[in-house]
Amino acid sequence: MTYIIYIAFIFMAAGLIFSAIRFVKGPTAGDRTVALDTLTTIGVAALVLLGYVFQRFVYIDVALVYAVLGFIGVIVIARYLEGAL
């Protein structure tokens, strides 16, 4: 079970790095916003798995709040790009 969590953390760290590279390279504003969205989803998953590692039930609330509020920033940026904010 320990090795499974190690492998999952390595996968998520690689995902964070790839999304960050796309954020730096991306030619348009949409690419960078997609990178932010992916980073948010990977962050929620990482928070839940870290909560399991630390064995505290209270820690899951952070991931819950993050999943609720994380997409508002992306929607505001999208409305601004659309010209309709």
Partner: peptide
């Protein structure tokens, strides 16, 4: 250390 929050999981261990 762990977080300074009391919860049933903390009181058990």
């Amino acid at each position: 250390g762990t977080a300074p929050i009391f919860s049933p999981g903390y009181l058990a261990n």
